[in-house]
Design a protein around this nucleic acid. Structure first.
Length: 497
RNA sequence: UCCUGAGUAGCUCAGCCGGUUAGAGCAUCUGACUGUUAAUCAGAGGGUCGCUGGUUCGAGCCCAGCCUCAGGAGCCA
């Protein structure tokens, strides 16, 4: 575990010598050193040159075989995808294109890879094709970079909150509450579908079910998070979330990961400050710790853009886009202000919007959000104080404005290319107002008694938000389809692997 | 769920107005070469044209239904 080497153990004996990770090898100046490297063959060129990758770096090491001193039958097995162990000497490369290489002394095939069947070739594959072989796509440069960044961002989330004294709270995956109404839920049940127990009126008798009641996979840990925030002050959740919506877009998954901080004694402004600080911290963390990966993805995007018409190409490359986000304050405007900007905007006046802005009260369409973020402000935008009618019951009510319109203390952070990346609010802490709102929205108060207890005993102002982790990874990696930033995407009609 | 588009070799794609034996590049296999960088050169093999049905003398191509994928919309994170 020292000098960048790790040990591999079998169950009862050490089966392999220490290996050197390729990432460390690529930085070494230790010429003449004898090393063992293990990895997977990317290509084997000219019967001499193995491009070897062990996942530690997006870059390969070149191992050079003297084909006269090795069995031809052994060299034949150096196919793309094969796992090999190489003992050799670190030497300065004779060729151009790499600084160092390994002169191979011993070569062992650990696992063959039938070239006729292995689907990955040393060439560009479409992301659609790689999605069909998600179990192997980790071995490509692109997904090596994407999932390294995903890891770094996940770690950074915990570091950010831990450093601020937040408590990481595990909220339940299986939940009985479906109160938030955040979309269709997946039912959790052990009832035999061929023999459903029924009540006299024909409805399903959930008393017979595993939990003795109807249960679902969680759509949000927020309500439970609020309970914890009312004791710990500052908490966050970071876990899987499930929505059974039939959404077929580049931004939606049936199973995704969400980060939900909840803070006592925060108002909406504190909430926005924290969200903006978090997003900038995470972007900065990726820039600081994933330089190689981001560089690779930047070039990948530039390559891809070449095939697009000039008008559709983006203004910035990936790194410039990320830095731009760091250097600028997010624009904060109210829903009411946004509506007036949109009403007077060119696309609205010229009737280029598919949905024209008529007046106050309806939700903004994605074309409107995109206009605000990508055309008008050209930076991330935080929209606040939405009409109460289109938002959830737990959001804190504002006093009606001069025209008698009621809004809630909600905020959505909109990012270019992604749309809504964060949704949050200051919560309604006043019991009577909350109960009245629940009644209006037909939310059964009896079932939510545990939630309302927070307002009955020591209620306090508090706020929180949800950050879609995959949407963040999308933004940072510059990928365009959310199915390519989660290892095993679950979408309608697809739960392969 | 709605709208639009697509589905042809392992991959990426071409296939004219419905007409003979469905093509290319890459990959694979065989051989050559041996400091290559998506190596190169020569040759070979490889097809349920998404599925089902229909129209027609004749369907990869036209029609209907279904499945899957992609992009957009809605819902949202």
């Amino acid at each position: 575990m020292v000098n960048g080497t790790i040990c591999i153990f079998a169950t009862h004996k050490k089966i392999m010598a220490k290996r050197t990770r390729i990432k460390d090898l690529l930085n070494t100046t230790d010429f003449g050193k004898k090393v063992t490297v293990m990895g997977w063959v990317k290509t084997f060129r000219n019967n001499q040159f193995i491009a070897l990758n062990d996942g530690s770096s997006i870059n390969n090491i070149q191992a050079v075989v003297d084909f006269n001193s090795f069995d031809e039958s052994l060299l034949k097995r150096l196919t793309t995808g094969a796992a090999v162990s190489i003992k050799g000497e670190v030497v300065e490369s004779l060729g151009k294109g790499q600084r160092i290489e390994i002169k191979v002394n011993e070569l062992e095939i650990l696992g063959d890879s039938d070239a006729e069947k292995f689907p990955l070739q040393p060439k560009k594959h479409s992301l659609e094709f790689l999605r069909e072989i998600a179990h192997l796509r980790f071995r490509t440069n692109t997904f090596n970079a994407v999932f390294k960044i995903r890891h770094a961002l996940a770690y950074a989330v915990h570091k950010f909150f831990n450093d601020k004294g937040f408590v990481y709270m595990h909220t339940p995956i299986i939940t009985a509450s479906d109160a938030e109404g955040a979309g269709e839920m997946f039912r959790v049940s052990t009832i035999d579908p061929d023999n459903i127990p029924r009540n006299e009126d024909g409805s399903i008798n959930y008393k017979e079910d595993f939990f003795g009641r109807a249960t679902n996979l969680t759509v949000s840990g927020q309500l439970e998070g609020e309970l914890a925030a009312m004791a710990f002050g500052d908490i966050y959740t970071f876990g899987p979330t499930f929505r059974a919506e039939n959404s077929n877009t580049t931004r939606h998954l049936a199973e995704f990961w969400m980060i939900e901080p909840e803070m006592a004694f925060y108002d909406l402004n504190d909430n926005m400050d924290l969200a903006e600080e978090l997003l900038k911290y995470l972007i900065q963390y990726a820039l600081d710790h994933c330089a190689d990966e981001l560089e690779f993805l930047k070039n990948r995007l530039l390559e891809e853009e070449k095939s697009k018409p000039q008008a559709e190409r983006s203004e910035f490359d990936l790194l410039a886009k990320l830095n731009f986000c760091l250097d600028n304050n997010f624009e904060r405007i109210s829903y009411t202000e946004a509506v007036s900007i949109l009403k007077n905007s060119k696309p609205n006046q010229k009737k280029q919007f598919k949905y024209l802005i008529e007046g106050w009260g309806s939700d903004l369409q994605s074309e409107h959000e995109r206009f605000l973020v990508e055309k008008h402000f050209k930076k991330p935008v935080i929209l606040t104080d939405y009409p109460a009618d289109i938002k959830s019951f737990y959001m804190r009510l504002n006093e009606p404005d001069a025209e008698g319109r009621t809004t809630v203390r909600a905020m959505d952070i909109l990012f270019p290319g992604i749309g809504e990346i964060v949704g949050g609010s200051q919560r309604e802490e006043r019991l009577e107002k909350l109960e009245k709102r629940m009644e209006e929205m037909h939310i059964p108060a009896e079932e939510m008694s545990w939630y309302l207890d927070t307002r009955r005993f020591g209620s306090a102002p508090h706020a929180g938000f949800g950050l879609g982790f995959e949407r963040l990874v999308l933004f940072v990696t510059g990928m365009t389809n959310i199915r390519d930033v989660i290892p095993f995407p679950r979408t309608p009609k697809n739960a392969e692997f």
